[in-house]
Computed example of a mutant assay.
Amino acid sequence: MTTQIRAAVAREAGAPLSLEDLTLDAPRADEVLVRIVATGVCHTDLVVIDGHLPTPLPAVLGHEGAGVVEAVGSNVTKVAPGDRVVLTFNTCGTCPSCRDNAMAYCHEFFPRNFFGQREDGSVALQGAEGPVHSNFFGQSSFATHALGHARNVVRIDVPEADLPLMGPLACGIQTGAGTVMNALKVPEGASFVVFGTGSVGLAAVMAARAQGAATIIAVDLHDTRLHTARDLGATHVVNAGSDNVVGRIREITGGGAGYALDTTGQPAVIRQAVDALGSRGTAAVLGAPMPGSEITLDNSDFMSSGKRLMGVVEGDSDGDTFIPRLVDLWKAGHFPFDRLVTFYPFDRINDAIEDSQAGRTIKPVVTMS
């Protein structure tokens, strides 16, 4: 049977979302119906709302959902009604990357997460004006209910009172922390620098601290965020507007950082991240670039010093194992990502988006109750 839901619909690029009553399909064989408790607002949602990615409109966005399973399709054995879950990115499960347990690089990542439809081209949402695109990141969780998939629902062990906090682990927090822990594998005693201290960058700071990095440097233009970075584990901060960034990092680290992370997607900042590395250092890039942007490096320095530059998607994570790992770190007091979150009621979702864009909120989360 279908489910009547309330959803925030993106109808026009650059316009506020509209709260509407929609009809959601019953779950198919591999789908999971989840009553959404809360959903994080991620930068990727904002990019789609602004029209910079080709997700068709009208659509229900949202891809950091947390909730309770209400029904499962006939082929689903991974979760059962009543389970508390986080919905993360969707994957095919059969391509070479998925078979290698590198799901973040699924060969069908883009169509399964951005095309706003099921694999067969159907949509799961209907409104008074006709079909509404669904299945954004395999969920479309800016709604009271969402259809996830067996592959992208992750069961978590938390009290229901804590469930509204868990959504950001699905993407933004997972991306920053996972890049440090899974992709860069920053070791104990290492030096690490992150460029950009939004929710992704601050998650990276917390992860570097949990890994035991000895020197953790945060770079940003906003002193308030740099202050937060210090509170969360950064040993040093650099204001990119007033300091010689590369020179300052080299001074702090005694010649260059062992590991660097760019969260901005800006080519000039990526160049700084690579230039700030010491010999045999590794930099990771995860910020969403504008289409067609290019990275320019000092080829002689890059080659002769044995530096490495890598691209990272979704923290190089397997959500089924990594999200519970982050939950355990949070329970133990080693990963206080809750300090980044500001809650908004669902009917104020446009305020949450505006505050995120203006930098007034680090990690907005909308709650459905």
Rank of each mutant, 00 (worst) to 15 (best):
R84V: 01
D50G: 04
G201Q: 01
F114L: 15
T55E: 10
A66C: 09
R112V: 01
N152S: 06
L33R: 09
A203P: 00
T367H: 12
L297F: 06
S300E: 10
G73Q: 02
G40L: 10
E294Y: 01
I156K: 10
F110H: 08
I49A: 07
A10Y: 00
V205Q: 02
P27S: 12
V219Y: 00
L24A: 13
V312H: 00
A29F: 08
G278W: 01
H222K: 15
I173T: 06
A229K: 07
V9Q: 12
H149R: 14
D262Y: 07
H133L: 06
S141E: 02
G82N: 05
V34D: 05
V194E: 01
V205K: 02
G255F: 04
D223R: 09
I49S: 03
A190W: 04
N135A: 14
F114H: 10
A15L: 09
T235L: 07
P187D: 12
V72E: 08
T3Y: 10
V32R: 09
S279L: 14
C92K: 08
A218L: 08
L53C: 03
W330P: 04
V68H: 12
G167M: 13
L165K: 14
V48L: 11
G265K: 11
P345K: 10
V47H: 12
H133Q: 10
S140N: 06
V274P: 03
Q266M: 13
V219K: 02
A177L: 07
T175R: 11
L22W: 13
F192W: 05
H227V: 14
T264P: 00
L232Y: 05
A358Y: 04
V205L: 09
P267M: 09
N244F: 09
N101C: 10
S242T: 15
P187H: 11
G65Q: 11
T91N: 11
T94Q: 12
Q357A: 14
G198T: 07
G189Q: 12
L33Y: 06
G67S: 12
G67I: 11
